[in-house]
Amino acid sequence: MSGGDAERPAVVVLLAAGADPALLHEVCAGAEEEGVPTRVDPAPQGDAVGLAHEAAGRSALRTGIGIGEDGAVAVHHATLPADAPVGLAGPDAAGADRRNVGHLAARIVKVLPLA
């Protein structure tokens, strides 16, 4: 984006330092397949749930995704308690499960049923 453009609302994705950046592909693809853009920001450290809650607070869409150092991925909404993510894929989750976290984030933004 150019400096003069207003920032496009997006689901914020926080990627912990030490997390595998390849995880971003599946997570972001899931949201973008639903037509919801993502913005990736680095995070110095953290677990997926804490990062997701922080990301939701940064997002104009009030929805965030956290990718923890261990490879776990969580989606959160800014109105929920910090320890209550909407969805979580553990560190050993398959790529499809991580993509589903992206889909879930998009469905929250679009106010669609989650199941």
Results as ranks from 00 to 15, higher is better:
34 E>S: 08
85 P>L: 00
89 A>K: 05
83 D>V: 11
76 H>F: 01
6 A>R: 14
88 L>R: 05
66 G>S: 01
50 G>P: 00
60 A>V: 02
7 E>I: 14
30 G>S: 07
82 A>F: 00
88 L>I: 05
4 G>T: 13
73 V>T: 09
34 E>K: 14
89 A>G: 03
91 P>V: 00
113 P>I: 01
68 G>Q: 05
63 T>S: 04
112 L>N: 00
103 H>Q: 11
6 A>L: 14
80 L>I: 00
62 R>Y: 04
89 A>T: 02
16 A>S: 14
30 G>Y: 12
2 S>N: 14
52 A>T: 07
22 A>C: 01
26 E>I: 00
3 G>V: 10
24 L>P: 08
8 R>F: 09
14 L>Y: 06
48 A>Y: 07
103 H>I: 13
108 I>F: 01
97 D>R: 14
25 H>Y: 09
107 R>V: 03
47 D>K: 11
35 G>L: 08
38 T>A: 09
8 R>Q: 15
92 D>E: 14
39 R>L: 14
51 L>D: 07
73 V>H: 06
39 R>K: 14
44 P>D: 13
91 P>C: 01
1 M>C: 07
99 R>T: 08
47 D>E: 14
21 P>Y: 07
56 A>I: 04
32 E>I: 10
82 A>P: 08
66 G>L: 04
111 V>Y: 03
13 V>C: 07
34 E>L: 15
94 A>M: 09
40 V>H: 07
28 C>V: 15
58 R>Q: 13
45 Q>G: 13
77 H>N: 03
47 D>T: 02
97 D>E: 15
104 L>C: 12
30 G>D: 11
94 A>R: 15
62 R>Q: 13
88 L>M: 02
24 L>S: 05
96 A>F: 13
104 L>Q: 12
35 G>P: 13
79 T>Q: 02
18 G>A: 08
70 D>S: 04
2 S>E: 11
108 I>G: 02
31 A>S: 15
101 V>I: 15
110 K>P: 02
31 A>E: 09
90 G>Y: 04
106 A>E: 12
16 A>P: 09
9 P>A: 12
39 R>P: 04
41 D>T: 03
14 L>M: 13
48 A>T: 05
39 R>D: 09
13 V>Q: 10
103 H>R: 15
41 D>C: 10
53 H>R: 09
18 G>W: 08
54 E>M: 05
30 G>C: 12
93 A>K: 04
79 T>G: 12
20 D>Y: 04
40 V>P: 11
72 A>C: 04
113 P>Y: 00
107 R>Y: 05
93 A>T: 10
112 L>C: 00
70 D>I: 01
45 Q>W: 12
38 T>G: 10
12 V>M: 05
93 A>I: 03
35 G>S: 10
83 D>G: 00
85 P>I: 06
70 D>M: 01
7 E>A: 15
20 D>L: 06
68 G>P: 03
86 V>F: 06
92 D>R: 14
50 G>N: 07
57 G>C: 03
80 L>K: 06
110 K>G: 02
73 V>N: 06
22 A>E: 14
15 L>V: 10
12 V>E: 05
62 R>H: 12
109 V>S: 03
12 V>A: 04
114 L>Q: 13
3 G>N: 12
107 R>T: 01
36 V>Q: 06
20 D>Q: 05
2 S>W: 08
54 E>Y: 00
12 V>F: 02
6 A>M: 13
